[in-house]
Write a protein that binds this DNA or RNA. Structure first.
Length: 352
DNA sequence: AAGGTTGTTGGTAT
DNA sequence: TATACCAACAACCT
């Protein structure tokens, strides 16, 4: 479940790899929901554009384009992005005649139509279509370590296997022959093109709370923002993206365990000192996760295809039945708070 | 094999 | 109007 640290890991990795690259083609497979822009908008504002920056707000990834459009990506629960570099064996392939001038800026007055969803979005006529077979054959016959590869997001085997696979929703090909795959085994995630200037006006962007890792996000800011949800549980409050940005079920449980606060406690009953502890813990656990590569310790996949271990540093999340790290003879319990699976130590985190 | 899983939206209730 | 709560979404996993 990509949360802030996982999306930040995606951002950092992709920024290194795709800034400056020009898009040769983009293809949506099978699911209009995953990429609802019209064929026309894709041809006009994505194909032929180059990547100028990769940013993040909350759990949302913002891929900035030279066309003054932004590819906005939400991985939701099972989304992931995988970059696969051009095969050295194929590096001499012809650069398709995908040159396209985008001198005139896009008309920002008219937002792209998301209602019109095309079943398949392909590159403009004349650009080389992705040869799926070739890619698959290469991956099975020549060792994958020949290619630069980076993947992050939901940690499943699509990070390391042949792509595209059955979870692939969108394929973006760059002019140098490298590819970016958007995979999502469930179909909650999406990517959409917006005029860059419109991004701040997206409903989510208007109401989302402060970035917890920014310097101006002090314990005082968290305390004050929590007051708007004083009658709900502290877990529901920190999961609320309008209170603060980026916390999901994993880091909610980890942060609350760290601060020794019971998730079901009402916000109004959480002492200010506990809020300060929670502030410290949430930031620490998310920073640690970013250091570790966002819940997986191997996002850069090597030739052996080692899969990242999942949340091996969690102290409470999905550790029910295992000892609390602070109390060797007390087991982590599982319950339901805020409609979510919740993991607590019955000794550290007491409810009143 | 049916129920659990989760981020966000949107509906209903208070 | 604001806040609280929960079903719905999808498809794999246990």
């Amino acid at each position: 479940m990509p949360e802030l640290p996982e999306v930040e890991t995606v951002r950092r990795g992709l920024k290194e790899l795709i800034v400056g690259k020009e898009i040769r083609s983009a293809e949506a497979l099978e699911s209009p929901k995953s990429f609802p822009n019209s064929h026309e908008d894709v041809a006009a504002f994505l194909v032929g554009a180059s990547i100028t920056d990769v940013r993040r707000r909350a759990k949302v990834l913002l891929i900035e384009l030279s066309s003054e459009y932004t590819l906005v990506v939400h991985l939701k629960m099972t989304g992931q992005l995988v970059f696969v570099g051009a095969s050295p064996l194929l590096s001499s392939q012809p650069q398709a005649a995908a040159r396209k001038s985008l001198d005139a800026g896009p008309a920002v007055e008219s937002a792209p139509s998301f209602e019109k969803s095309s079943r398949e979005i392909s590159s403009k006529a004349g650009a080389a279509p992705l040869d799926v077979t070739r890619l698959a054959v290469d991956d099975s016959t020549s060792p994958s370590f020949e290619r630069e590869r980076f993947g992050a997001g939901h940690p499943n085997d699509s990070l390391i296997g042949e792509l595209p696979d059955k979870s692939t929703r969108v394929i973006i090909e760059f002019n140098d022959g490298s590819h970016l795959f958007f995979n999502d085994q469930r179909k909650f995630g999406w990517m959409k093109l917006y005029p860059s200037i419109e991004v701040p006006n997206i409903d989510f962007m208007k109401k989302v709370g402060p970035e917890p890792l920014e310097d101006d996000f002090t314990a005082e800011v968290l305390y004050e923002r929590l007051q708007r949800r004083k009658n709900t549980t502290i877990k529901a409050a920190i999961l609320d993206q309008t209170v603060l940005a980026g916390v999901g079920n994993i880091y909610a449980d980890e942060g609350l365990w760290g601060a020794r606060v019971h998730p079901a406690m009402r916000v109004k009953d959480v002492a200010k000192e506990q809020v300060i502890e929670l502030w410290r813990e949430l930031r620490e656990v998310m920073l640690l996760a970013i250091e570790k590569g966002g819940s997986t310790d191997k996002n850069y996949v090597d030739a052996e295809g080692k899969r990242g271990s999942y949340m091996d540093f969690a102290r409470a999340f999905r550790r029910d039945g295992q000892p609390c790290p602070r109390h060797p003879d007390v087991l982590i319990e599982k319950s339901k708070v805020a409609g979510r699976g919740t993991h607590t130590c019955p000794v550290c985190q007491m409810l009143y």
